[in-house]
Amino acid sequence: MNRPITLTTACLLAALTALPSAAQTMIPYETGRGWGYKDAGGNVIVKAEYDAVSRPADGLGLVCIKNKWGAVNSKGETVIPVEYDYVDLCNEGFVAVYEGPVRESDGTPYMTGGEWRFMDLAGTAGTSRPFGIVGPFVDGVAWAEESGTGIKRQRRAMPIVDKKGKPVGQEYIFGVSATFSMDDMYLTDGEGKTMEVPDGRWILLDRSYNTLTENTYDAVGEFSEGLAWVRRDGKYGFVNTLGQEVIPAIYESVQGAPGSRHGSLLLHPETGAVRWVTDRSGRTAWLNEKGETVIGFTDSDGRVSLDDIVDENMWDF
């Protein structure tokens, strides 16, 4: 087993427990027996009886005993029993629980071949049907993969090292940050690059687990400002949070998709342009959130030279 958090250095522990923060009400701490949580005042709220705990998210903490995972809240109550093979993606009142095999690749554990389900901790949706893999709830919707393609799903964690670079453990990430990427979920190689992700059959779910998308997609991206890229039959487009394919999946590449170059959208969103797409010739166009063209296909990728007169069409005023 890959060892979870093993911070034992006294100085680190001292720093850990000395962290006063009004914002953080669940502060991990360690005793010789295990890990737990204290509040900002140093009062124990979860006894140090777990093999590992996570950075808290949405008032919940991920906890582990003997390779089984669950969650506790800031009152010290067990919210999800410690019986799952993993628990993750805590966001907007939902978490994802996993039951199935956990394998290893170069010492790194990953999950594949099992079943993921959503749990609605804040509402009434209960537990969802099983999926091959799932993404987090963002803006009230979540991606789910129906077929179970053999995707290798990693535990989202960060290494912890001391000032001299000596590894001292891992910190598990339970919540979903604003910069979350779907790539964060997939197993990475030794250099941190995402390993090959097989095509799947992705659908979009609402908070009641209803399917919003008419189509299934081979691959999908995370939602950002209401849009997520999708790929179907090798072509890219964008879906909104209603599941509508507002920018049809007909483009060779789109902003944010794997392999697309970064930084090409150099137009401010005030122009109405929200995403760029490229055609077969490699030309770029900028579209609004309805899929309408703001700037038609041009050989320029949006970068302009300091020595140029900028194409008048690229100015909004």
């Binding site: 962290l19 912890i160 090292v161």
Partner: peptide
């Protein structure tokens, strides 16, 4: 060559 990836939980405030 020193990595500066240091545990957030241990960060000073």
């Amino acid at each position: 060559g020193i990595l500066t990836i240091i545990g957030g939980l241990a960060a000073g405030a």
